[in-house]
Computed example of a mutant assay.
Amino acid sequence: MEVIRERVLSDLSKSFFNKAKLFATGPRLRKEGRAPYFYLLRWLAAGKEWTLNVADAIKKNSEHRGSVGQIVDKGYLADHISKNPDLQDVIHFDPRTRELSIEDPKFFYYVKNLLWSKFCEQVGYRSVEFDSRYDYALSFAGSDREVAEGLFKFLSERELSVFYDVNEQHRILAASVEDYLAPIYRSEASFVVALLGSEYPKRIWTKFESEQFKERFGQNAVIPIWFSDAPPGIHDETVKYGGLTLDRGKPLGEELERIGLLLCKKIEEYKESSKALEPSG
């Protein structure tokens, strides 16, 4: 039976591998990202039915809320399917009900029996296992919200998971703000990005946040972003660590893209090194 099964899957692969790959990588393969399309296909295949309620799946897999929620809420998932007739032959998504369903029984059998670790590498991802809830957590003074929001949008559109307070306000409601924020800056983000504008040292919440992550400087987990109009002083401890400078004299969009691309490269190499350290077998 195992030999027959392998032959069937080999035959089905000729028809369905490229379609599964097209869906799993999304409009563009982003090796630094959290592979939201890959996970949707994996969750869909893991179920007994041919349908997946995406909203329910996100609730059950909250660590993927940021990345999967992004492609659903902003219409990227629906757009990806609508622009690819090959996908429409096998997968349907209803934005109103948020139901993702497989239309072809042979395709369902194929993805149901995929070896996901092998498929992950075949489609171009080094790894889709993550050791943190967020890739980055942003720490900033309210006066620099424009910078924080622009950086959040840039990184999240590249399928990274980023903690940005406005994006989670509804979850913070009625909760102890300190209890909610403290673990994010202490350990739940792979890196903390501190946007060190002129108001950063003066604000209550930035003082609180920096208290949570100050020990992580020695763990190479904090990335300072110095503003050109508020350069660090000679006794500023952050200058001991590698960071970036945001030039206020240049267009903000260009500066955010430059910094954002470097942060994407950083997280991609971090994931590569983390994968290399995993035990084999």
Rank of each mutant, 00 (worst) to 15 (best):
V3P: 00
R5C: 05
R7L: 03
L9V: 05
D11W: 11
D11Y: 13
K14G: 09
K14Y: 13
N18V: 02
A20G: 09
A24W: 05
T25W: 02
P27L: 09
L29F: 09
L29Y: 04
R34V: 03
A35I: 07
A35N: 06
Y37R: 04
L40D: 06
A45Y: 05
A46Q: 13
G47Q: 08
E49T: 15
N53E: 08
D56A: 10
A57L: 05
I58R: 02
S62D: 11
H64W: 14
R65H: 02
Q70I: 03
Y76C: 00
Y76I: 14
A78C: 01
D79G: 05
H80Q: 08
S82W: 08
S82M: 08
N84Y: 00
Q88K: 13
D94Q: 00
R98P: 01
L100H: 04
D104Q: 09
P105C: 07
F107C: 10
Y109T: 04
V111E: 12
N113V: 01
L115Q: 15
W116C: 05
V123C: 15
G124T: 12
Y125F: 15
V128D: 13
F130I: 14
S132T: 15
R133Q: 12
Y134H: 11
Y134V: 08
Y134M: 12
D135N: 15
D135M: 12
S139V: 01
F140I: 01
G142P: 00
D144M: 11
R145L: 03
V147A: 04
A148H: 02
E149W: 10
G150R: 06
F152N: 15
K153L: 12
E157A: 03
R158P: 02
E159P: 03
L160K: 03
L160T: 13
L160I: 07
V162G: 07
E168G: 00
Q169K: 02
H170F: 14
H170P: 00
R171I: 12
L173M: 11
A174D: 14
A175P: 00
A175H: 12
A175T: 13
V177A: 09
E178Q: 05
Y180W: 13
I184L: 07
I184W: 05
A189P: 06
A189E: 03
S190A: 14
V192P: 01
V192S: 01
L195D: 09
L196N: 07
S198H: 06
E199D: 15
P201C: 02
W205A: 01
T206N: 06
F208L: 07
S210T: 11
S210N: 11
G218S: 10
Q219E: 15
Q219V: 04
A221W: 01
V222K: 10
I223F: 11
P224A: 13
P232N: 13
P232T: 04
G233R: 11
Y241K: 06
T245Q: 14
T245N: 07
L246F: 12
D247V: 08
G249C: 03
K250N: 11
P251M: 08
G253D: 15
E254P: 08
E254H: 14
E255K: 11
E257C: 02
I259G: 08
G260D: 03
L262M: 13
L262I: 09
E268K: 14
E268T: 06
E269M: 09
E272P: 00
S273M: 10
S274E: 15
S274I: 10
S280C: 05
S280N: 09
S280K: 10
G281F: 06
